[in-house]
Design a protein around this nucleic acid. Structure first.
Length: 241
DNA sequence: CCCCAGGGAATTC
DNA sequence: GAATTCCATGGG
């Protein structure tokens, strides 16, 4: 056992109490703010919809998949600017992505960094989506795409398709390794860690979406590479305190 | 100048 | 499997 089930549940409660519902995925094509949550929690910049549960359109599902690729090893602000650029250029469909020249696509998503690789990744994903006639791709099918690894696949599964897969990113490993006694979390295998969290409790999809989003905001506020421990809600549990 | 950000593929051992 | 290296922009 990598982490105790109790700790996984407790951490979720502490994060939710501190930061409130995050309403991920932050869609760039949905701009109307949720004023109630903005007032309550003071966040909600740029398309967050905490607790609204508005069904995703096919275009929004595609936006999330593109965003998951564009944010690879990149600050979300840079990735979000690239998503905005896709929207502006009317490229939020697999057909449109395939119809635009690679060089143009690279230029359109330039702010996300690694733009030549990411343009290729968007093209490969689009090709498979069209080949499968727009069907929901399985985890295996997503992983078969050049440029989609475990984390990106799980991001698409969880946030675009609404399927119960827990995302293990660097923030998640850092956070869990710091609050847990286990010293092997940073080096544990992706799927071992994912299955440990998925199996800790019968999380709903909504809770799994919130959990990952909460870990990210906590990672930005406190549990960064260089830890910022002042006013951290895990002062009691964390090794750093 | 430096470090960092919601990874993944290719190569090598 | 583990360790390297490459991909690249924008903010602090």
């Amino acid at each position: 056992m990598l982490i105790e089930n109790d700790l996984i549940l407790k951490a979720y409660d502490i994060l939710f109490d501190r930061y409130g519902p995050q309403g991920w995925w932050p869609l760039r094509s949905r701009k109307e703010p949720d004023l109630a949550n903005q007032e309550k929690f003071g966040f909600n910049k740029g398309g967050y919809h905490p607790g609204k549960d508005i069904a995703l359109s096919a275009q929004e599902q595609f936006e999330i998949a593109c965003g998951a690729i564009l944010t690879q090893n990149t600050n979300w602000n840079n990735a979000a600017a690239a998503v905005d650029s896709l929207i502006k250029n009317n490229l939020l469909s697999a057909e449109a992505i395939l119809s635009v020249k690679s060089e143009e696509l690279s230029d359109i998503i330039k702010t996300s960094g690694y733009y030549n690789q990411k343009a290729k990744k968007l093209k490969f994903l689009s090709a498979l989506l069209i080949e499968k006639d727009g069907c929901t791709l399985s985890r295996e099918e997503l992983l078969s795409v050049w440029g989609i690894g475990r984390e990106t696949a799980d991001s698409i599964l969880l946030y675009s398709y609404g399927k119960p897969f827990f995302i293990i990113d660097l923030y998640t490993r850092r956070f869990l390794s710091r609050i847990s006694e286990n010293d092997n979390i940073m080096t544990s295998s992706y799927d071992d860690l994912r299955e440990t969290i998925e199996g800790a409790y019968n999380f709903s999809v909504k809770q799994m979406q919130e959990y990952h989003a909460l870990i990210v905001i906590h990672g930005k506020n406190h549990c960064a590479k260089k830890a910022i421990c002042v006013d951290c809600p895990f002062a009691k549990e964390c090794k750093y305190n």
